[in-house]
Design a protein around this nucleic acid. Sequence first.
DNA 1: ATACATAGTATCTAAATAAATACTGTCGGG
DNA 2: CCCGACAGTATTTATTTAGATACTATGTAT
Lengths: 111, 111
Amino acid sequence: MEKDLFGICPYTTAQRVLSGKWSIIILYHLGKKTMRFGELQRQLPDLTQSTLTKQLRALEENGLIERKIYPQVPPKVEYSLSDIGIKFKKVLAELAIWGNEYIETLKDKNC
Amino acid sequence: MEKDLFGICPYTTAQRVLSGKWSIIILYHLGKKTMRFGELQRQLPDLTQSTLTKQLRALEENGLIERKIYPQVPPKVEYSLSDIGIKFKKVLAELAIWGNEYIETLKDKNC
DNA sequence: ATACATAGTATCTAAATAAATACTGTCGGG
DNA sequence: CCCGACAGTATTTATTTAGATACTATGTAT
């Protein structure tokens, strides 16, 4: 992990972690419970396996999630939120409130 | 504005608005006060004028900000948060708290 | 021996995003 | 008549991100 500069603005930092198409929903699902790869994939039918793998690796790199490998066959790998990932749930909660309000405004404009 | 589907998950919706490299910081700055284009650009020296224009247009399309043109010469254009943009400030507040905690964890791992 | 389940990798292509750079229009001041 | 201020546009290029598709490993069950 070769993360760079300190003293970075918290907003810039957050943006870096959240950009992309799937980070928020993945964090939301893992926030509900620890899940295996396959289970998570079933929650998210719109991304392919390789994309999901990449997203998970990125979140792991950034320290938001943890990956626990059980030495079994067939493989078992569990994904869960890290400590800082758990703290992110507060953001998710506000995001959910806001997202719903936003959806309402779209309906009002019926577009 | 041809935004599509309703009944969308609030997380997916939020993600769509936040993806990209600059949305959060721009919203943060406009949350402090209404600003003219040039003033905003001086706050954000890391993006070029054309990139800033595109980001602002995207946020406007998504209904998060408003753009007020004063018919003057030289031109004066003010950007501000819309109603739903103002509501986003609650998310920003949580994001700031989390972002700072996240930066702390990076320091602990000194990377 | 063969098939199945799980969690991947490896490549390649496509799409989306951002950056670089140069150009535009108009009014007032010098 | 030219310059500067402001807020852009236009075009091209580069970078980043995601998607499609095919392939892998291994132990158990049939």
